[in-house]
Design a protein around this nucleic acid. Structure first.
Lengths: 232, 232
DNA sequence: AAGTGGTCTAGACCACTCC
DNA sequence: GAGTGGTCTAGACCACTTA
């Protein structure tokens, strides 16, 4: 017996429940949206919203004409926010500040040049910043900025505002890519981070684009022990 | 002059465009859904869907009565899939297989016991699995399974099906949490992975629950060089 | 108290894709 | 060709939050 009014969340929960109870198992074909709407006593759009949400999470596979199936491997998708480092530190209840270790406009090494799609001999702005939490090194940032795309960056005082925040607040990118890996702490980075040489650390590499034009490429080396967390 | 028919994607793109063009900048209040609908010549629901999507990405902040604003820090949220390891390896064009290194039912060490919410002296199933790509170590899995929640696990031959796939295909969890960090390769893990001792490696820890009951806790140590990727 | 987003409904048409 | 999901519309009511 359907309830009087269905919300899309309640439809979603009901479907999820049936999958968990193995009424529908991996690979099974579900009823059509229209049929489910009749069974549950709600509009088809409501069912659509619910199933779309579950498909988005990775629990369902949907294709026109082929219908909706329980995913072969009903795994979940993860969502991480990429917080501003200052915000992240402050949300831990610690005091944030940063220190600009170096700033220069120079030719890019080959891999960076390729990544930023710069022409031979073109300069870029190179910044090294140490982010601190309660005075302790939190993450070491090594950033290249494409001055063709973001000429204003040349005149910003990155001692006052860190590059991370300034660039993000400009919102001058359309898309980007990021990857996480580990690396073994080098002598130089170890000194900056105040951590032992040779320790394994989390490293994030991020690059952003404004349409066709590259904006910036940044590498973040987190102090030992840092963890990136999410729930699902 | 509005187009004849608006899709929610075109509305989303238009709004994103205005943010990028700095017509609306960080912290600005946007028009109401109703006003935007009139301006763009579409239904309010269409605007709602578009703005909801942007808010979901992290570009907008929306609150009832308070309205819609450009986020203070218009950062993006990341989405990662947690693929089945076999699927991940095969999508790289490599051949997958796995090797069960050890299987025993034993008392849990204190941290695992706490994490799985087991009572004192309660046993759990402990599995160590090495996942291989083209015969080379890909990731080392160290897993504890709560036999109270998943008693069937006791009778499964994990030489034939790896625990990762079997558990996921059971879909017997409601939620979970995951964290990524780095660690320095220990002697024992280095031998299993066929990698040098002391190298920094990416480590993922994941735990899942079925309602109140813990299901499993797994730690994955990836071979050196592995990267987790995403776009935004 | 009032304004704003959140959602539901019913009906319609479209787009993709499988047969 | 036909079936299924994807989306749009107009109108309505609700829920939350701020003033």
């Amino acid at each position: 017996m359907p309830k009087e009014t269905q919300t899309w969340q309640s439809v979603r929960d009901e479907v999820q429940h049936r999958i968990q109870k193995k009424i529908w198992t991996a690979g099974d074909l579900l009823p059509t949206e229209a049929d489910l709407a009749i069974e549950l006593g709600c509009a088809r759009v409501t069912v659509n919203r619910a199933l779309r949400d579950l498909a988005d999470q990775g629990l369902l596979d949907r294709r026109r004409k082929a219908g909706t199936r329980v995913a072969e491997f009903p795994t979940r998708k993860l969502r991480f926010s990429i917080p501003i480092i200052r915000v992240e530190v402050e949300s831990l209840g610690q005091t944030y500040n940063h220190s600009l270790l170096s700033r220069q406009i120079s030719q890019t090494p080959a891999p960076i040049q390729a990544a930023l799609a710069l022409v031979q001999g073109q300069d870029a702005l190179h910044l090294k910043t140490l982010h601190l939490a309660d005075g302790h090194p939190f993450v070491l940032e090594d950033r290249w900025i494409n001055l063709d795309t973001v000429p204003d960056a040349q005149d910003i005082d990155f001692n006052a505002v860190n590059a991370n925040e300034w660039l993000v607040s400009q919102a001058c990118f359309t898309h980007g890519e990021v990857s996480f890996g580990a690396s073994t702490l080098s002598q130089e980075d170890a000194e900056d981070l105040g951590a032992p040489v040779g320790v394994g650390v989390l490293k994030a590499d991020r690059q952003t684009w404004d349409g066709e034009a590259s904006v910036t490429r940044v590498s973040l080396i987190y102090a030992p022990g840092y963890r990136l967390r999410s729930t699902f």
